[in-house]
């Protein structure tokens, strides 16, 4: 029998590789009866989705929001481009 501790580890692992069949079945059966582990899995998926959204939002050129390159860094970099 898999414990909750095992299952949390395997939930994470299943996000990085396809688990061997026996483990996969063990996790699925556990998730049917354990609401905490099922909740844990939903939360990890939310975390994954959030990371993707952050990447997608920040990776668009010309987005006005968010951090900007400080002015003194811009000056320094322009200088470096001219000098090279």
């Amino acid at each position: 029998m898999l414990s909750c501790k095992d299952v949390t580890r395997l939930i994470s692992e299943s996000m990085d590789r396809s688990l061997p069949l026996r483990k996969r079945i063990g996790v699925r059966v556990h998730l049917l009866i354990c609401r905490f582990c099922a909740r844990y899995e939903r939360q990890l998926l939310l975390i994954r989705e959030t990371a993707r959204r952050i990447a997608a939002a920040e990776d668009r050129p010309g987005e006005p929001s968010g951090e900007t390159l400080p002015e003194e860094a811009k000056v320094r970099i322009r200088q470096a481009i001219c000098n090279s």
């Binding site: 920040e58 050129p61 010309g62 987005e63 951090e67 900007t68 390159l69 860094a73 811009k74």
Partner: peptide, 13 residues
């Protein structure tokens, strides 16, 4: 010479 203004903020983010 225009790169920093065009792409600086984007690459920095």
């Amino acid at each position: 010479s225009e790169w920093v203004d065009r792409y600086g903020n984007y690459l920095f983010r």
